[in-house]
Amino acid sequence: MKTMTCKQLGGACEKEFNANTFDEIGEMSKAHAMEMFQRGDKPHLKAMNEMSELMKSPNAMNAWFNKKRKEFDALPDEQ
Rank of each mutant, 00 (worst) to 15 (best):
N49Y: 11
Q79E: 14
F65Q: 08
K42N: 11
M51P: 07
E16K: 15
E24I: 06
L54V: 09
L45R: 02
K70S: 14
K7A: 14
E71W: 08
M1I: 05
S52P: 01
S52V: 00
M55F: 00
M34F: 11
D73E: 14
L75G: 04
N49R: 13
A74H: 06
F72T: 01
L9Y: 05
A33H: 01
F65G: 05
D73V: 01
F65V: 05
D23V: 13
S57D: 15
M55L: 08
F17S: 03
L45P: 01
S57V: 04
K42L: 10
L45C: 05
H32R: 05
F72N: 03
D23L: 14
M55W: 00
M61D: 03
E14L: 12
N62W: 07
Q79R: 15
E78A: 15
K30T: 09
G26A: 09
A47V: 02
G26Q: 08
N59T: 08
N20S: 15
R39H: 08
E53W: 05
K46F: 14
F65A: 12
M1A: 11
G40M: 06
R69C: 12
A47Y: 03
A12N: 07
A74I: 00
P58H: 02
E35Q: 07
D23F: 12
E50A: 15
H44I: 04
A63F: 00
G26Y: 02
G26R: 02
S52R: 06
L9C: 09
E50M: 12
G10W: 09
K68I: 06
F72D: 02
M55R: 01
M48A: 13
K56H: 00
L45D: 00
A60I: 00
E24G: 15
D73I: 06
M48E: 10
P76T: 02
G11C: 10
E78V: 13
A63L: 06
F22G: 05
F37Q: 12
Q79H: 13
N49A: 15
S57Y: 05
A31Q: 03
D41M: 07
R39I: 01
A74P: 07
M55T: 02
M55E: 05
E50S: 13
F72C: 02
E27W: 10
M1F: 10
F65I: 07
L9E: 01
K30Y: 13
G11S: 11
M36R: 01
L75K: 04
K42H: 07
N18C: 12
K46G: 13
M28I: 01
E27I: 10
N66Y: 10
M48H: 11
E35Y: 06
E16Y: 11
G26M: 06
M61N: 07
M36D: 04
C6K: 05
G26I: 01
M34H: 11
A60E: 13
N62V: 07
F65M: 09
D23M: 11
M55G: 09
M51T: 09
M36T: 02
Q38M: 03
N20W: 12
N18L: 12
P76Q: 06
C13E: 06
M28N: 13
D23S: 14
K56R: 05
Q8Y: 08
Q38S: 02
D73T: 02
A19T: 02
K67Q: 12
A31T: 03
A63E: 10
N20D: 15
L45A: 03
M1V: 08
K2T: 06
